[in-house]
């Protein structure tokens, strides 16, 4: 099957099917999954890290690890997108904790020279799926609305924990608030978020 046709066929596959194929070393499936989620992974990394270069590094690292260790995703434990976001968050928060101290990596063997004479094994852009993109956009709008409905102090507690990588104790110290107050805000925030999203997020 020609590469482009192979990629086109795979754009209709579910995330889980693509991961199954990736585990069988299907390079085209990897390309399709990359194209499907690279914007989201990069944007989420940028949201946590606030630095385009660090976000790019994190995105690269996440996808390379996904290719090398696809078995990390266990379908029985939840949907792929949630797992991916969890990986992104953990990777970015690890980076965030080292932020300001980490030196930029030197140019790697992968970016040195001779890019224009290489033959691509995977057709670029063939992973775009307008139906999936529309679903993701719809989900994004839904989540934004749910977040906007949260009281500011609850949203801040959630964001400091999730995007800032702070524990409840650290948040309490940083905000000069009692630990119990922070715990309550996180509990209520998550409760409202779950209720707002309940059953409406794409399965």
């Amino acid at each position: 099957m020609p590469l482009a046709a192979g990629a086109a066929a795979r754009t209709e596959w579910t995330d889980e099917a693509l991961m199954h194929a990736i585990a069988a070393r299907d390079e085209i499936a990897f390309g399709v999954l990359y194209d499907r989620y690279v914007d989201l992974v990069y944007s989420a990394s940028l949201r946590v890290l606030g630095d385009p270069q660090l976000a790019e590094d994190a995105t690269q690292d996440i996808f390379v690890r996904l290719w090398r260790r696809p078995e990390s995703f266990i379908p029985d434990r939840g949907r792929f997108l949630s797992w991916l976001m969890s990986v992104v968050r953990n990777r970015a928060v690890d980076e965030l904790r080292a932020r300001g101290r980490r030196q930029r990596r030197e140019a790697t063997v992968t970016t040195s020279e001779g890019e224009d004479d290489q033959v691509s094994l995977i057709p670029s852009g063939e992973g775009d799926d307008p139906i999936l993109a529309a679903q993701l956009h719809e989900e994004q709008v839904l989540v934004r609305k749910a977040l906007a409905e949260l009281p500011a102090e609850q949203r801040m507690a959630l964001e400091l924990a999730y995007f800032g990588g702070l524990t409840q104790q650290q948040i309490a110290v940083a905000l000069h608030e009692p630990l119990g107050t922070v715990k309550t805000r996180i509990r209520l925030g998550m409760l409202k978020l779950r209720r707002s999203l309940g059953g409406q997020v794409r399965d």
Partner: peptide
């Protein structure tokens, strides 16, 4: 809970790498 938490990242404005 992780599904709900992951939604926080889904709300992030999209940027192209």
């Amino acid at each position: 809970s992780e599904e709900a938490a992951a939604a926080l990242l889904l709300a992030v404005p999209r940027r192209q790498p």
